[in-house]
Amino acid sequence: MIVPILIACAVIGVISIIIGLVLGVMSEKFKVEEDPREHAVRELLAGSNCGGCGYAGCDAYAHAIVHDGADPTLCAPCHEKSKIGAIMGLDIKDTEKMIAFVKCSGNCHNTVDNYIYSDGKDCRIAYTAPGHGAKKCVYGCCGLGTCASVCPYDAIRIVDGLAHVDRTKCHACGVCVSVCPNRLIEIIPERAAYAVRCSSRSKGKDVKAACSAGCIGCGMCQRVCENGAITVENNLAKIDYSKCTGCGKCAEKCPCKVITVGHVE
């Protein structure tokens, strides 16, 4: 009874050992010299192959950094750029954690449609329709989810006709920024306490007519801000995140409640 088992074990064992030896010898004989820095840089990159850096993937980018002298700061999800710098002998500072932010509040409750747009597939196509899509506001989010479909981290959802970024999933790779036809998505520091959730450069009256939650450019925030972090240009408030201390006075005073951060209903 025990003999056939032993024979089977012996046969498999011997074959495995032979194969192992052959493979070991082969891998030594046909060894390919790889730059160890390439592997080290590759380990530090985000490893999600999002393509935000403009290269075909993390492997290709690591290769380009080491061999072609590519700019080592292009990986948005990577926050250990100083380590990459140390490997490459360059002085690079760690970057702040960033996040994608949709500068629009025009969901189905706040704005109305001018007409029915039925070919709901791609914002970039809808943008070519009259008024940059069906919504009354020509600057607003088309809400067809092109950003959501390209997001490599599955971090964007369309809720009530408006794109929402899941801050826990977003890596700020910037792929959505480049596909949004209205340029509504901006990469902002994650620590930013307040941001302007509107991109409308229309005059106050027109904004009011199109959307109940748009920035009318009244300048209240600019006046109330003690650090001079807010400027109103082209009827639109803009926050300088390097000056903003997060006091929240602007959000308090904003008559349209358009200065906010995080998920608003």
């Binding site: 056939p4 194969i19 493979l23 390919v32």
Partner: peptide, 29 residues
Amino acid sequence: ENLRYLRTIVFILIIAALVQTVEIILKKK
């Protein structure tokens, strides 16, 4: 004859090793 029942497992071993070998050689050559 008497080791026929080992075919599956031995063949899996051979195929896996073969693919590895081909990969190693291709990577170099």
